[in-house]
């Protein structure tokens, strides 16, 4: 290796190392939208009636399909191209006691969490996933979507779902009942699943109010009586008083997880048992965008690299051509 080659190699190495080491200055997590709306799902109040599943299908025009097996209603096992919302069941042993980890059972709602710093929005190449700047609602826009399904791999909750059984399928996800044509929230209404929930297990409202409510419930002990609101927390339709049968986990899911979510969950059972993913506070979006932007620094680095490469290649190519 002569001196020039050595310098060149060393230079490339240093440049490479510089790229890699600055990766650490990724951007911070996004903050909640100024007028963020969301939902609070309280697993201890859920009775598993699945009224929200049916209502969700109705308002979103995903009428239950008769799959030829005699079922007249669609109680899907998981989210799919025609199901935006499911109620799942945790059960252990004899499954005798509600909200008990041992020999008990519990319900869990799965629908879009409306992340504060959404992975799906960050990874979509054509901006087909958008976070509303005011309400924080994450919507999907099929007219832009190319169907690459990166949102599916980039969503920590596996929420966006593609219609694999349709040659001209599209992505579906819960858009908080606010997609074009429905716009329940813009019209001053609430989400269909919250509206029909008989116990207030699914509660709609501004994220900040829901967070306060969740924190109040964290303070309760089993045996306490509490007046639970139904519908929209900013203007509840009714309340119902109930005695707490189990202690809450001291954990508001969505306060911090991967940057937080607008849909908050509370429960008497640890969230990993309910199938929630192992997330840290940092959003993957903030980390991966940091890496991407450091490597590309808004194209300045590639442009400089191109200039250098062009020079080196031209000189070497002229040399070789001369030799031949």
């Amino acid at each position: 290796m002569d001196r020039r080659t050595f310098l060149k190699t060393a230079g490339a190495g240093v440049a490479g190392a510089a790229c890699i080491s600055t990766v650490a200055d990724a951007r911070p997590n996004l903050e909640p939208a100024p007028e963020a709306v969301g939902m609070l799902y309280d697993s201890t109040l859920c009775v598993g009636c699945k009224a929200c599943v049916t209502a969700c299908k109705e308002v979103n025009d995903m009428t239950p399909v008769d799959r030829g097996d005699g079922h007249i209603y669609d109680s899907a096992l998981d989210l799919s191209g025609d199901t935006l919302n499911v109620i799942k069941v945790y059960s252990d042993g004899t499954a005798a006691v509600k909200d008990s980890e041992e020999n008990g059972f519990a319900f869990e709602k799965r629908s879009c969490m409306h992340c504060v710093d959404p992975g799906c929005v960050s990874v979509c190449p054509v901006t087909a996933m958008r976070r509303d700047p005011l309400t924080g609602i994450v919507t999907h826009h099929p007219d832009a979507c190319i169907g690459c399904r990166t949102c599916m791999v980039g969503c920590p909750y596996n929420v966006p779902q593609f219609e694999y059984d349709n040659a001209f399928g599209r992505i579906h996800k819960c858009q908080m009942c606010n997609q074009e044509g429905l716009e329940r929230i813009n019209k001053g209404g609430m989400t269909a699943c919250a509206e029909v929930c008989p116990t207030g297990a699914t509660l709609f409202g501004p994220r900040s109010m829901l967070m306060e409510e969740a924190k109040r419930r964290m303070e309760l002990k089993s045996g306490d009586n509490y007046n639970f609101p139904r519908g929209d927390i900013s203007k509840p339709e009714s309340y119902h008083e109930k005695e707490l049968e189990a202690d809450y986990q001291n954990h508001i899911w969505g306060e911090k997880e991967a940057g937080g979510t607008n849909v908050l969950h509370i429960s008497a059972i640890a969230f990993d048992k309910l199938g929630m993913p192992p997330l840290e506070d940092r959003s993957y979006a903030s980390v991966s965008e940091g890496v991407q932007h450091t490597l590309y620094k808004y194209m300045a680095l590639p442009a400089a690299a191109m200039a250098g490469l062009t020079y080196v290649v031209k000189r070497n190519k002229d040399n070789h051509d001369g030799e031949e």
Binding site: S122, V123, C124, P125, V126, T127, A128, A144, C148, T150, A285, S288, E289, Q292, H293
Partner: peptide, 8 residues
């Protein structure tokens, strides 16, 4: 349509 944050 382009999202410059997206690796894809």
């Amino acid at each position: 349509h382009m999202n410059f944050n997206a690796v894809m």
